[in-house]
Design a protein around this nucleic acid. Structure first.
Lengths: 140, 140
DNA sequence: TTAGATGCTCTAGTAACTAGAGGAGCAAAA
DNA sequence: TTTTGCTCCTCTAGTTACTAGAGCATCTAA
């Protein structure tokens, strides 16, 4: 059956042991089997589920979205529109964030470039932060 | 002296009243004056500080960084290297995040494009999420 | 005078973990 | 056999930057 301890599961999946326990607690992972001494034993299925969760988290999905995706995975005969929609929503978030971060980068660069490294009283960084009107950031 | 209530301060600064109280509580804002009936009265200085904080937050600075920047602002004769360093650190974070989000966007697009809108069992989105090896994301 | 808006404090909740306390079990060396 | 050190258990509390709500006081306008 090839069952592993939580430490082993953590190593194999790249998810830390406390986080695995946390996922169990919030119902993202089913409760694994236990040894006589009450230690968790993870089977292949658990490890696969863990890998799925981890990959989703790396791509920035919220736990709620992951919960929905896992539910889909558990019912493979359903149409996959929901999975598609969740991924598209995430893509939208990413694109929004990208635009805003690009604008931000511009403003930060401008701020840093115009700093003449004198005293705080003449510091452009502080000045721009203090006075929004001096800011060229397009979206706030 | 032109002092305003917390609601007025919220309107003027764009920071919500509970958030203003929160900033006071954690020592980011000095305790403002009070009326006889114990209501907060914000002076111009407070409003300037609030605007500073808000602008910093919009640019994504952590409250700790803002605390440091405010301390600098309070001692204008210091050299402004610290302000410069904080802004540069933030720029670094932004650039890192940008790279990672761009990679993410690519992966999400690829996932969505290869979805044929059938059943979950053949869904490429779910499949790629389940199996990291099928993922082209360069950095994880 | 009374209704509705605004203010006060305090507690608790959010996301997604992370850290620590205090204790039990296990494997290997002395 | 004992002891050392690692892993594991549960439980509580802390993190960031707020947000929501309860229960009460005060202010403003009709």
């Amino acid at each position: 059956m090839h069952e592993v301890s939580i430490g082993e599961a953590a190593k194999l999946s790249g998810v830390k042991a406390p986080t695995i326990r946390f996922y169990e607690e919030i119902g993202l992972l089913p409760r694994p089997a236990r040894t006589g001494a009450n230690r968790r034993l993870f089977a292949d299925d658990d490890l696969r589920r863990l890998a799925f969760i981890r990959h989703c988290r790396e791509l920035g999905f919220h736990l709620d979205a992951i919960r929905a995706l896992l539910k889909l995975q558990d019912n493979p005969k359903q149409p996959c529109d929901t999975a598609d929609a969740i991924a598209k929503e995430r893509l939208g978030e990413v694109e929004l964030r990208l635009r805003s971060l690009k604008a931000l980068r511009g403003e930060l660069k401008r701020m840093i470039d115009s700093c003449s490294h004198g005293h705080v009283s003449q510091c452009r960084v502080i000045e721009i932060l203090a006075d929004h009107a001096k800011c060229m950031h397009p979206t706030h």
